[in-house]
Simulated assay, not measured.
Amino acid sequence: MNTPIRNVSSFTDALKARRAHLAGLLTLLDVKKEKSNEIEKLSIEALKTMISALDSQLKKRN
Rank of each mutant, 00 (worst) to 15 (best):
T49E: 01
K33N: 02
R6Y: 03
I39Q: 10
R18G: 00
V8A: 07
A53S: 11
L26Y: 00
K16L: 13
T12E: 05
A20I: 08
D30Y: 02
K16C: 05
R6H: 06
M1K: 12
G24N: 10
L15D: 01
E34N: 03
D30W: 01
S36C: 12
K33S: 06
N37V: 09
K41Y: 02
E40T: 06
K60D: 12
F11I: 10
A20V: 02
E45V: 12
G24D: 08
S9T: 15
A14L: 13
K59L: 14
E40S: 07
I51R: 11
S36N: 00
K35N: 11
L54T: 06
H21V: 00
A23E: 05
E45W: 07
L29D: 03
G24S: 09
T49I: 14
V8L: 11
D13Q: 12
K32Q: 08
K59V: 06
A46T: 15
K48Y: 03
K59I: 14
P4S: 03
A46P: 01
Q57H: 10
K35Y: 12
N37P: 11
L15W: 15
N2P: 14
E40A: 15
K60I: 07
N7D: 11
G24C: 08
E38T: 12
T27A: 00
E38W: 13
S9W: 12
E40G: 07
S10V: 07
L15F: 08
L22V: 04
S36D: 01
N7F: 11
N37R: 03
T3Y: 10
R61V: 07
Q57P: 01
N62M: 04
R6V: 08
I44M: 06
L58D: 08
A14H: 13
K33H: 04
K48T: 02
T49L: 07
L42N: 11
M1I: 11
L47N: 01
T12H: 04
E34P: 03
L22F: 13
E38K: 06
S10F: 11
N7R: 15
K16R: 07
A23W: 09
A46D: 15
E38I: 09
N37E: 06
D30K: 09
